[in-house]
Design a binder for these strands. Structure first.
Lengths: 328, 328
DNA sequence: CGTGCGGCTGCTCATATGAGCAAAGATCGC
DNA sequence: GCGATCTTTGCTCATATGAGCAGCCGCACG
């Protein structure tokens, strides 16, 4: 575009978008035909001089969603706008809201929904509307938090989601991580636990989040792990946890021995699911989000714009476990 | 607007603006008639959820210009966009560019143009295009800088503007501020100086800027005033200088004794002019800009968006008792 | 100096959109 | 329970806009 045209297109855009003039009027102001004005306007848009933004806590970024879906091979992607959000809590709230909306909009609604627990999921539960579905049974897919005063949030998340959908919640009566492998094996074979795990593995859909590998993790908070444990995991390449299991950048289990002591659905089952919805927001979770998406842990991702852009930019790497699911 | 409609209007706006869908298509996606969609879109715009911004160094803010013109009773106002500008130099450059454009667009072009000098004006001169007018004579309206190595910028500003318009520059052969009143009277009555002042007072148009009342002022830089002088002026209520004369928030001369020793057009002459263009940019100059506009020193203001908004917000408020009461 | 080509211009025509209006609903007071 | 009033809805019609095309200009090349 020639410089003079560029300037004209800016003047035209000002008159069109800020003054609500018609292209014809602009034509007579700038002494141009109205077709020329139309072309200048088109140029202005194409060159990105005209920026249209939707500013609203519930606003989504449809073009980003599309790119995310395409570059990462997701069935669906929900990306909330970051515009004007300063703090991470707000971001998480918006994302949780979007996840709740998405869940409620699923047709057909899942009959059984497997969920993990954590701050994010709890937020999603709170944002769901009463009656968001008609009778959805909720099953926990990993061991609950129960070591300290926080006891009950895991349960309450599940119960809330189920109640609001007019269904039942089935809790997994087990700690998240056991100290000894034998205990873990024992509890897993207990009929009550086994039944829940069985139910969980047959769920129509899964909804889970992921935690960053830092000392603020709920697993540390709940007393299952210490800050030192986390540091060791990070040294071994951990970027975060998914349903209580720590993974590296490619989505592989970092510490198999720890993983064996962790009760819940395996990551393989999650990868094999028809519909698994990950809800991940915040800059601290970019790395885990990457691992989740790359390794095919979710078919649907609900996230914020910044995270989405991060994923899109860094995607080309590591196609491995994804390929097994057959994306050509 | 009801909550559900608000959300719908956001969804509609996303599809319309981000996905370029037609209102009809949106209608079938959201199961609404296309008229409803049109109304939702109108609501979204009206509620400010849709923000359209023109992002370009030469972009102006027409609606702000209008408000500025109306609330401050200006003949004309030029407001450059602040979008994405972090540093004040860039802001000043954009404003200077806009001033140059405005000057070049004046019809009829002034035959004689009175100008002040300073960093801003110099910037305007540099941004003017060669041949921006056909033969404009430029006259300095206040004493030049000549005490130190910066000597000549005042002259070069005038000469540049004149040259680019194919006209002559008439310099004011006098210091800006004299130490003794007698000297000032004497120099003023000198034929060469008097002739220039006379020419200046008869100019068709004036172009000037204003300085903030701080130690970074060109008057300090040039050695006419010391940082202490400025501090004293500020204590006396000064907010900045216009053509070398320090004014308070209401545009009144702060120190009449200093003012008497200042050579150049009086503020009254400037106020009486048919066309006087002030070019003022930057957050440091909000206060002077206010004084200039309130006291009718300019008929046209070229400024940046932030300054413009500041002026609009603080206009109705009477000049100020704040300055008089002193800021401790 | 002619000739062929690419880009720009101004047009026609189909389509998308906004204004305005009558009918249908909703809301309120009585 | 019943109008009266105000809002919302779906429409018609006029207008604004975008797609596509023929002619024109400038340019490079033979």
């Amino acid at each position: 575009m020639i410089e003079s045209d560029e300037l004209l297109s800016i003047r035209a855009a000002e008159l069109y978008y800020e003054e609500d003039k018609t292209q014809d009027e602009i034509g007579s102001i700038l002494t141009l035909t109205r077709w020329k004005v139309g072309r200048l306007l088109a140029q202005a848009k194409a060159s990105g001089f005209v920026r249209i933004e939707i500013v609203h806590p519930r606003a989504r970024r449809l073009p980003v969603e599309r790119r995310l879906r395409e570059t990462c091979g997701l069935t669906d992607a929900i990306v909330v706008s970051t515009a004007g959000v300063d703090d991470q809590d707000e971001l998480q709230a918006r994302t949780a809201q979007a996840a709740a909306d998405y869940l409620a909009s699923l047709r057909p609604a899942p009959r059984t929904l497997g969920i993990s627990w954590g701050r994010t999921l709890d937020d999603v539960a709170r944002h769901l509307q009463d009656g968001w579905a008609g009778g959805v049974d909720v099953v926990q897919i990993n061991g609950g938090v129960s070591l300290n005063r926080r006891a009950g949030t895991a349960a309450s998340t599940a119960v809330t989601i189920a109640q609001k959908a007019g269904g039942h919640a089935t809790l997994l009566p087990s700690p998240a991580i056991l100290e000894r492998l034998e205990t873990k094996r024992a509890i897993e074979s207990d009929r009550a636990v086994a039944a829940v795990l069985d139910l969980a593995s047959g769920a129509d859909a899964y909804l889970f989040s992921a935690g960053a590998a830092d000392a603020g993790s709920v697993l540390v908070d709940s007393g299952y792990l210490t800050a030192d444990d986390i540091a060791a995991l990070v040294r071994a390449g951990a970027v975060g946890d998914v349903v209580g299991r720590y993974v590296d950048g490619s989505g592989a289990i970092v510490d198999p021995r720890l993983d064996e002591r962790t009760v819940g659905l395996s990551l393989e089952s999650l990868r094999a699911a028809q519909l698994s919805i990950a809800v991940i927001a915040g800059s601290a979770k970019h790395a885990v989000a990457s691992a989740v998406v790359r390794s095919g842990l979710c078919t649907v991702l609900v996230t914020d714009e910044d995270t989405a852009l991060h994923l899109i930019e860094n995607h080309p790497a590591v196609p491995d476990s994804k390929g097994q699911r057959g994306t050509e």
